[in-house]
């Protein structure tokens, strides 16, 4: 079958999402998805149209034991109360790095090269930091604009951050910039402005810095020396 034919792609996607595509045909279709962007787009379209219908199904509480079973499967005890802090820093989790890879726009130059051979001739490194969640009201399929650009001077001694889009921060909150090196705890680089360029001078970036992140903190910055609020923007260095 020629899956690039729009009508066929649409019919298969509709059957798949409705659930009437069954058995081997369903598995064949799923196997085709990774290689066919048009099929994936058709599936997304039907999911967007049909899934809101399920809002009318009365919710049913699963047994309390189910969450314990899930916790056991994902390894380690998750905090049951939403307000409780995670037992380990999120930056230590491998998943964080996979998340960074998915979220961050990768800058062209590597800081590792820079730190190995510092010199006045080195050009600054530009790190584009994207929001970890799109702004409210972003339409499905819309491109999430980058929110900050950080330029790191050639000798690694200064970082200048510039907001690209309006970032609204409540009056009693501040933005804090962090350098992240491997699985070490993030190192604070200082507070940055949400609506103007900020020059951050903090000696030299920690060796092995491979990402920058911006978190939401109380005024004056994180009281603990590690991020306490949600991470709003991340950008990765290197290739």
């Amino acid at each position: 079958m020629d899956y690039s034919r729009p009508e066929l792609a649409d019919r298969l996607a509709a059957d798949y999402v409705t659930g009437t595509l069954r058995g081997p045909a369903r598995r064949r279709f799923e196997a085709l998805l990774p290689a066919h962007a048009n099929l994936r787009a058709a599936v997304r379209g039907w999911q967007d149209r049909l899934m809101p219908l399920t809002a009318t199904i009365p919710p049913q509480r699963p047994s309390p034991q189910l969450w314990q079973r899930i916790e056991a499967r994902i390894g380690g005890a998750a905090a049951p109360a939403p307000a409780a802090a995670p037992a380990r820093g999120w930056w230590a989790q491998l998943a964080f790095w996979r998340g960074l890879a998915a979220l961050a726009t990768v800058a062209a130059l590597s800081l590792a090269v820079l730190l190995a051979a510092p010199g006045p001739a080195q050009p600054p490194i530009i790190v584009v930091m994207n929001a970890t969640t799109p702004p409210a009201g972003t339409a499905p399929g819309a491109i999430v604009p980058a929110s900050f650009v950080a330029s790191i001077s050639g000798d690694g001694r200064a970082v200048v951050t510039r907001p690209l889009t309006g970032v609204s921060v409540e009056a009693d909150r501040a933005l804090e910039l962090w350098a992240i090196a491997g699985s070490n705890a993030p190192r604070s680089l200082g507070l940055i402005s949400a609506n103007a360029a900020t020059v951050v001078r903090r000696g030299r970036l920690p060796a092995g810095t491979d990402a920058l992140a911006v978190s939401l903190e109380p005024p004056g910055g994180s009281p603990t020396g590690t991020p306490t609020g949600p991470v709003l923007f991340v950008g990765r260095l290197g290739t």
Binding site: P59, L66, A79, A81, A87, W90, F96, T132
Partner: peptide
């Protein structure tokens, strides 16, 4: 990003709908 507390909240808010 590996935040288990956030995942617990996500479960809290969505599991009854998905179970239905």
């Amino acid at each position: 990003l590996g935040d288990r507390a956030a995942f617990a909240t996500l479960y809290e808010r969505t599991s009854a709908h998905l179970f239905g």
